[in-house]
Nucleic acid binder design. Structure first.
Length: 555
RNA sequence: GGUGGGUUCGUAUAACGGUUAGUACCCAGGAUUUUCAUUCCUGUAAUAGGAGUUCGAUUCUCCUACCCACUACCA
């Protein structure tokens, strides 16, 4: 029997979705789309205590930004889906709104002898755990211990009846079979076996809030929603036997989904999985979008940090999966075409922020100058600059290869928009020396850190001034300025560049020294764009005035 | 502690019993350039350790080590 492929991404709204979660969603999406199947989003909010306002909206928006569009789910064009429709036949997709349907399944398990009522309070269990721990053991609610605890297996029927009626903090637990080997298959890991004696009697349903726990809700919903493959994080592998047993207890083996457990995303240095703090410590985002927590702290997002969604998706796709070829750049469509679950690796992948930037750089280069210009205009506006779109496009066309992010154009070419005048504001005086930068580039934080200053001008670096701004060279630079001012040939980068170069060469001046000093005066730094590129764009007057200004301030 | 999963250059990975163990990022050097960047070329660098199976193991089996996850009335 061939079933239509249906997969789901089932996050819990307990906070912002981090990049590992996005990757899980992406792999599900790719898997479904390749097979012409459905990708469903279901919100697993059965833990009322851990609910975080805004988290669900964040998840939807993040996936949307990535271009991971669900076929069915909690949201339809910003409107919450509450009732079943042709497009969303299994609505609602939020488990808290499905609470009515789970109890009957728990009851079914009780009736079939696969589950039982447990009356131990959390306090009692906590005490038991503490007790065992003190004795150097671990308390497990399982086939051994359940016979000495308060539940429907040990209590007389009348007492069970009474407690069910009169108390409200009982639970329904799964009755784990004894000494049974559960044989499981994982699409990524292959065959896995485990003996049930090492497993415990998981809580399936809680009377206190009349809600199922993850395990019950998950299996019931996957069954009801006709899910064919469950692709989720490796942290779920240990509960796979329980899930297998649950399908069996319900008699749903025929339509039980196949499982794939994805490797974890690890932090770039050291050990352990990527956590929300890592990003801010190491200068890269861990989240797709910015997130402000209840304490008002902001966590960086890829979107706000200037990543293109295509680049983000691409880099996530390559973290734990590879196509078996040497292709690294993939559009979403190409990913859909070439994705295969058996090429997903088994081991955890350390995230590499440098490679992430490289991906963005590649995508920036693929963008048209028009697109980049329209993305860069708001950046200019935020600096109080109103620029001509055509001029901006022109600037981008020859600075594109130097940029990784759109905001880089400001660092690279700010002096094509404003004059580098206010160098004293940087506390740098001519002749002052600057400490050399730390040498180990491999461990350097995000080099864009200095990009986001509020200044309108580029600083004169003292080391450049020391090196290039010598009185005898300044003389020559002033001469070049006069020459440019008097130049009346064709005004193009090529022509002006050739003319200036000829002029310096004919006079037999030191080309390097004059050019660098020139750049220092025009750009505020001895390294940067070509002299001709600058002069041709800022024009004669601005060229003359920048040189005059620099000469007056730095001599 | 118990159970499960994992282990190829610094990182991501390729090689599904036979290769000089490949590629990309990073790093280093060189060429080009008025500087920086780009581009191009070159280079450094890995099969965790030990047994076994085999004519031959990165690849299969076992042991050890290390890493990770799980071990909640959380997902």
């Amino acid at each position: 029997m061939e079933r239509r492929t249906r997969v789901r991404f089932a996050p819990s709204p307990t906070g912002p979705l981090h990049m590992g979660g996005v990757r899980t969603a992406l792999y599900n999406y790719l898997y479904a789309k390749q097979r012409g199947g459905d990708f469903i989003i279901r919100i697993e909010d059965t833990d009322s205590h851990r609910f975080v306002p805004g988290a669900e909206e964040y998840i939807i928006e993040a996936l949307n930004w990535c271009g991971i569009i669900p076929d069915e789910g909690v949201d339809e064009n910003g409107k919450v889906v509450e009732t079943p429709s042709e497009r969303h036949p299994h609505a609602p997709y939020r488990q808290s709104q499905r609470r009515g349907i789970y109890k009957q399944y728990a009851d079914q398990l009780i009736a079939s002898g696969n589950a039982y009522y447990a009356f131990d309070s959390s306090e009692e269990l906590d005490a038991k755990r503490a007790e065992c721990e003190a004795a150097g053991q671990t308390f497990i609610y399982n086939q051994l211990s359940r016979m000495s605890l308060r539940n429907s297996l040990t209590l007389p029927a009348e007492e069970t009846e009474r407690l069910l009626r009169e108390t409200t903090d009982w639970t329904i637990r799964f009755k784990m079979p004894q000494d049974t080997v559960v044989k499981m298959d994982d699409l990524i890991r292959g065959h896995v076996e485990i003996n049930t004696d090492t497993l415990d009697d998981k809580v399936l349903w809680k009377r206190a809030d009349e809600l199922p726990t993850y395990h019950l809700a998950n299996i019931v919903d996957d069954h009801l929603m006709e899910i064919t493959e469950v692709i989720r994080g490796e942290e779920w592998l240990p509960s796979l036997p329980l899930h297998y047993l649950l399908y069996k207890a319900f008699g749903w083996e025929e339509t039980q989904p196949r499982f794939a457990h994805l490797p974890l995303l690890l932090k770039p240095v050291g050990n352990g999985k990527l956590s929300k703090r890592d990003g801010d410590k190491m200068g890269f985002p861990v989240f797709p979008l910015n997130w402000i927590n209840s304490e008002g702290e902001t966590y960086h997002g890829y979107r706000e940090d200037g990543y293109f969604p295509e680049a983000f998706v691409n880099l996530l796709a390559m973290l734990g999966w590879n196509p078996g070829t040497e292709q690294e750049i993939f559009s979403m469509k190409e990913l859909i075409d070439s994705f295969s679950i058996d090429k997903v690796s088994k081991s955890g992948a350390k995230f590499n922020p440098e490679k992430a930037r490289w991906f963005n750089k590649e995508y920036l280069r693929m963008r048209s100058d028009e697109d980049l210009a329209s993305a860069f205009l708001p950046v200019l506006e935020s600096k109080g600059i109103k620029a001509d779109p055509d001029y901006v496009k022109d600037v981008i066309s020859f600075t594109k290869e130097r940029a990784t992010f759109v905001t880089d154009f400001w660092t690279i070419a700010s002096y094509l928009f404003v004059s580098p005048k206010d160098f004293e504001a940087y506390g740098i005086k001519a002749g002052a020396s600057v400490e050399p930068q730390a040498a180990d580039n491999r461990r350097q934080p995000d080099p864009r850190a200095k990009v986001f200053d509020d200044t309108l001008t580029a600083p004169f670096l003292a080391k450049d001034v020391d090196k290039f701004w010598k009185p005898e060279i300044v003389e020559l630079v002033l001469k070049v300025s006069e020459y440019v001012n008097a130049y009346d040939g064709e005004w193009s980068v090529q022509a002006v560049g050739a003319a200036v170069e000829d002029y310096i060469r004919t006079n037999e001046w030191p080309m390097g020294k004059v050019m660098n000093a020139l750049r220092l005066a025009l750009a505020g730094s001895a390294s940067g764009l070509g002299i001709a590129d600058i002069i041709a764009r800022i024009g004669k007057g601005e060229t003359a005035s920048r040189i005059a200004f620099a000469a007056s301030r730095l001599s």
